[in-house]
Simulated scan of single mutants.
Amino acid sequence: MPRAVDATGRSGRATMNDVAAHAGVSLKTVSRVVNGEAGVLPSTAERVSRSIAELGFRRNDSARQLRTGRAAGIGLILEDVADPFYSVLTRAVEQVVRSHNCLLLTGSCDDDPDREQELALALCSRRVDGLVIVPAATDHSYLRHEISVGVPVVFADRPPINLAADAVLADNFGGARAGVHHLLDRGHRRIGYLGDDPSIYTARERLNGYRRALADAGIEADERLIEMGRADPPSVRAALDRMLAAPNAATALFCGNNRLTMAVLRGLAGRIERPALVGFDDLELADLITPGLTVVAQDPAGLGRVAATLLFDRLAGLTVAPRRIVLPTTLVPRGSGEVPAP
């Protein structure tokens, strides 16, 4: 399978010249087929299309920019750029990318696996030099070809599935375990847990940390005090009504992410009896709530910065085995998690 040096000067990607030679046509003919222009016989267009598929050619939409000296591009795909957690992560990636005189192209996949794949392949077709992905997909083997032709990929926040690649994660298990231990140390034995969809890696890890902390204290988890799923207000209110009902009410709550923490705070508004509360992820203005919100804080800036640094290591030619880096979390006591058990 022929391969040549593309417009970026990096080997490993088929070019239009490769396709022309493989199909036995002129470069202009390949250009017309790639750009959907008229003037090509159907049989010739079919032959060119077969060569494109066999060679794994992708149109280099950024080649003109690179030839004129404009910065190369790095792609970033995450759940929702509007989420404060991902906004901080994005900013950190951007700072590293800028320091390497590159541009950052960002897309939100809304936790949709199909959208993630669509965005990733679209960015690769525009010849980004590498990708940082906060994954939603349950199978990342679709990226094997891209990696094999020289596009490094680094995963942040969640690890890849069915793909060997660098990953930067938070200590979800250890952070949740520490947060629940903090409540146990205040005498709480009935601790409710509200978490995200358990199919999500971070949600599973945090739930496992919650269970381990209870087991450390010799407490069997009560499944009636565990709610995994959506963070919409009606669902959270229903979960709170169940968990806080006498006679075996939860005296403390642990929330698995910032969206759930916000929904719980709204659900608790107006209640006379307020359980102790610890949330995973920090919130803006969390110190201004009364009492201040105790959290297990991640480091989204660290996740973004380290992920981008690993990516540029690969672009610089590093060929070591895929790396997995786990960043620590920090317990931040502010008052809500220090309420003693009744």
Rank of each mutant, 00 (worst) to 15 (best):
H181F: 08
I200W: 05
A178T: 12
S199T: 11
H188Y: 06
A167P: 05
I200Y: 07
G195R: 09
D197H: 10
I200E: 06
T202Y: 03
I200S: 04
L194V: 13
H182I: 14
D196W: 15
R186D: 12
G175C: 11
N172T: 10
D197E: 12
L183I: 05
G192H: 02
G192A: 06
R186T: 15
H188P: 01
D196E: 13
I161D: 08
L184V: 01
G195P: 08
A167G: 06
H188F: 08
G174Y: 08
Y201H: 15
R186P: 10
V180I: 05
L194N: 10
I191R: 01
A165S: 02
D185S: 14
G187F: 03
I200P: 04
R190C: 08
G175I: 08
G195D: 04
L183D: 02
S199F: 00
L184K: 02
G187R: 05
L169R: 05
R190K: 13
H181A: 15
D185R: 15
N172Q: 13
V168Y: 00
L183Y: 02
T202L: 04
N172R: 09
D171S: 08
G174H: 11
I191A: 00
G179D: 05
L184D: 02
P160G: 08
R190W: 04
Y193G: 05
G174I: 13
S199H: 06
H181L: 15
V168H: 00
D185E: 15
N162G: 06
V180L: 07
H181C: 15
H182R: 13
N172P: 10
A178Y: 05
V168A: 01
I161T: 14
A170M: 15
D197R: 08
R190A: 13
Y201L: 09
A178D: 13
L183M: 09
I191N: 01
L163W: 05
L194S: 12
G195A: 11
L163V: 04
A164Y: 03
I161N: 06
A203L: 00
V180M: 02
G179S: 10
R189D: 08
I200M: 09
G192C: 03
A165V: 04
Y201A: 10
G175N: 13
A170C: 12
D171E: 05
G175W: 02
A167C: 08
A165K: 00
A176G: 10
A164S: 12
L169Y: 08
L184N: 02
R186M: 13
I200T: 06
P160F: 09
R177E: 15
G174A: 15
I200F: 06
L163P: 01
V180Y: 00
A203H: 00
I200G: 02
S199P: 04
G195Q: 05
Y193R: 07
G195L: 06
D196N: 14
L169V: 09
D166Y: 02
A176T: 12
A176H: 07
A167Q: 11
V180A: 03
D185T: 14
G195V: 08
R177S: 14
Y201S: 09
S199V: 02
A178E: 12
D197I: 07
